[in-house]
Design a protein around this nucleic acid. Structure first.
Lengths: 304, 304
DNA sequence: TATGATAATCGGAAATACCAATTAAAAACG
DNA sequence: CGTTTTTAATTGGTATTTCCGATTATCATA
């Protein structure tokens, strides 16, 4: 049997893939350019295949090379995890944990979550990152993040998930409008173009429209906001109505406003909140404990 | 950041864990005993923890050591998989595939299966292994096998599964007895102690009893057989009745006998057939293709 | 045509991996 | 009870590997 590739060479390959440049990749690995260059050649020899196509100045990863990079990433991160696990004497709730959260969830959980985790697992180093679902999934794949807190349903590609709980949507209107709309909401009683939503980059827009059975698009205003807090301000200024998730209301987003929240049309007008991770992770147990902590903070906890 | 452990040292650790002896482990790795010894010490130093307790003659793996072994196994096998994948130029249906099958499934699928796989994937090297569910699960965990074909429901521990299809149970009796029993079967019409089953090591016994709603244990004969073929022979000799899975009948297990098969009591008197694999595998795509091939051979294919 | 950037190559130095032989300690045996 | 066998650790020396700095070759571009 031929010799296994060395982790060192695999990490050279990853650095090269990330930097797309031998010098920078070498610097990244704290080795000389010549070392990295021969490391890659060495690897190609051992694997008996071409990983990069060289055209005498620059280079390109081959299709096979890209696939090897994917696999190498898993191996390197599993090795890092082993190292970290051993050095922590088997304590799984120790060291860095990189958690990505979408903007329509983050502000309403990170306060409580980081406080609780700090108390229960003082050696855990929570590193939060707020971004859109698509960017987060990309960064999870890259190994830049460990787990994601997302709203579902959603195409999570090759990843795995746990559904932690449910977060109902509420229609938020100025209190002087509440009477005319009724409860559950009759959208027909709202003026045309009076419902404001977030930019389409935010998955909440789609989730809210689907969950609340808001099919009549004439009711929607073409202006889109970039944050829930903006939407609330607009509603408070009597520009119209909007949807707000229950968890935001629980954390007081409507305080100091003249807004009221109404139950929207639709039996279960809600989004699911889930934790997403790579299927190849070796930290399921750690993630599970994080899942339990987050689930306790949700309006409806459905983690089994 | 401290240096990653080398794959070489991790493989020394695995060999030591398997052999529980430095000399044999060293031989296994084709290195001298001193090399392996210092390799392990090296690893302990790098990981900054004690992996084995030495008592001046023998040694014992520490709890942490055992856990590190588990993780190391995943890393080594992922690396082997990467190597193999690269050397096969990305062809996932190439090289050895170690498949474990329980004895109440194996004889009825391996013929067709290996023929079909041979045709479709001539470079695939199928290595079959027949054993009980418990032993197979143990060997899967050890990395000795890649995937298992089992009957479900079953505690598959930390592993993952695909349900491939359903396999109905039939009550098999001598044709002269068929009239008196009726269809669907009325167990009360059978003499006491007239139902023969397999040894309790075979999961089929439990599955058949549960699925066919055979609660009245007085009907069962305390003698237990070691194979379905024995059971059939006993039924043919008019010693009693027995349960046989549809897939066995489809493959002609009742040919050249005077037996008939009857539909047992119970709406869906059947077992599920599933493929089980380690959650940390990197060969899902390969396994999926195997799953499709197997599913086509089952009485009821439910693979989505 | 010169300049700068890039990746590959080469030769020597440093680090390491490895082995054979030896030691130390305990277990098995007579 | 002493001898032999088995086991893992240690030691010292050798072979191998890894790594770097310097150099070369190639191309882009100024």
């Amino acid at each position: 049997m031929s010799k296994l590739p060395s982790l060192k060479n695999l990490s050279y390959l990853l650095a090269l893939h990330q930097e797309q440049n031998f010098n920078r990749a070498a610097a990244e690995c704290n080795v000389s350019q010549s070392t990295l260059s021969s490391g890659i050649q060495n690897l190609e020899e051992q694997l008996d295949c071409q990983l990069i196509e060289r055209d005498h100045k620059s280079f390109l990863f081959t299709a096979l090379g890209e696939e090897i990079v994917e696999k190498a990433r898993d191996i390197i991160s599993a090795s890092e995890e082993l190292l970290h696990y051993a050095q922590g004497q088997g304590n799984i709730m120790e060291g860095p944990l990189r958690l990505g959260i979408i903007p329509t969830i983050a502000p309403f959980v990170i306060g409580e979550l980081s406080k609780n985790l700090q108390n229960k697992f003082p050696k855990l180093l929570l590193q939060l990152s707020e971004d859109t679902t698509q960017n987060l999934l990309h960064r999870l794949r890259n190994g830049e993040l460990d787990i994601l807190l997302l709203a579902l349903p959603m195409d999570i590609q090759g990843n795995q998930k746990w559904i932690l709980g449910r977060d109902p949507f509420k229609l938020v209107v100025h209190k002087e409008l509440a009477e005319t709309v009724g409860e559950p909401v009759d959208y027909d009683k709202l003026p045309d173009r009076s419902i404001f939503l977030l930019e389409k980059e935010h998955c909440m827009t789609g989730h809210a429209v689907a969950a609340c059975q808001l099919t009549d698009s004439i009711k929607m205003n073409p202006f889109t906001a970039t944050s829930l807090h903006s939407l609330v301000q607009m509603a408070d200024a009597r520009l119209g109505a909007t949807f707000v998730p229950q968890m935001a209301i629980d954390r007081g987003i409507l305080e100091n406003t003249d807004l009221v929240s109404l139950k929207p049309t639709g039996q279960e007008a809600s989004r699911d909140i889930g934790l997403v991770y790579r299927p190849t992770t070796s930290r399921r147990q750690t993630f599970r404990k994080i899942a339990e902590e987050i689930a306790r903070l949700l309006p409806v906890n459905t983690l089994n």
